[in-house]
Design a protein around this nucleic acid. Structure first.
Lengths: 142, 142
DNA sequence: TCATTTACTTATCAAATGATAAGTAAAAGG
DNA sequence: CCTTTTACTTATCATTTGATAAGTAAATGA
């Protein structure tokens, strides 16, 4: 196995994944939030509850900027902050009802587009895709 | 095959791909260019020669902003503009020597990190990864 | 030939983002 | 206790990015 060829193949896939991600998600987010805020909400959605520090680490932004964006999301009533009872410096961030509604709507659009993308795939194709997702998830994108 | 489960699995992979892309590329780009300028150079690298319109379409930015960024990249001597001899409104954009050097350096860093990521993979693992990349490229991220 | 379209440029403005510094309050550790 | 560290906040500023409008020059097409 030539690792150089594998590298190029991987780069090609990365490029395609980013293009398809854009196709699946374009205009999915509400216009009332910025791209950064959407990414934060997306992260909260799949990982809640999370602390501001978690967000700062995973979204690669400074604590000060994270704090600012969370404040804005709070003002838009999209998230809830819950103080840790043990360590009162810590906070747990969750989606509010409004935040959940907003993200459900976005995810529904993305899912529709995903289903459209695989609508012509045969049963065998779907099984191959499923297996490939598992392999890449565990062996390459761990 | 439950398409809903497949969708969730796919979203998980997308998230992982974006995270790993960040890990592979962080600090790979020169500090003398902005993220948007790096994305443009990356696109030119794999697709050259390209027109400003191509860049505008593929990078999802307006022609005016594309033009501005290309001007900055020109001023930094990272790209060359070549006029089309047939249609003199058109331009073809290529990397300059400096641009090539800059991108080679960036890609070399990314490749090293990629090789490190798969250094513990067995021969069989690599073959499975290779095959999975092919399948997803053709059947999902086409 | 002359209006229209295409490809790209320039200028300008607002908004989003990144970076830094200084601060608060609570916990941890000697 | 008291110093240090941690978790987070607030304020400020520069830069980047997005969006819009007006323009040039060449090609297209009736």
């Amino acid at each position: 196995m030539d690792k150089k060829i594998l590298f190029n193949k991987c780069i090609t896939l990365l490029t395609s994944v980013h293009r398809v991600t854009h196709e699946l998600t374009q205009n999915a987010k509400s216009e009332s939030i910025t791209p950064v805020q959407y990414k934060i909400l997306e992260y909260i959605t799949v990982s809640q509850p999370v602390t501001p520090s978690d967000i700062s680490d995973c979204q690669h932004m400074s604590m000060s900027n994270t704090s600012r964006e969370l404040k804005k999301l709070s003002e838009k009533n999209l998230i809830k902050k819950i103080s840790d009872t043990e360590d009162r410096r810590k906070q747990y961030i969750c989606l509010s009802k409004d935040g959940e509604a907003l993200m459900n709507e976005a995810f529904a659009k993305v899912e529709l587009r995903f289903l459209d993308r695989i609508r012509n795939a045969s049963k065998e194709d779907l099984q191959e895709i499923d297996r490939s997702l598992d392999i890449l998830q565990t062996k390459l994108f761990y």
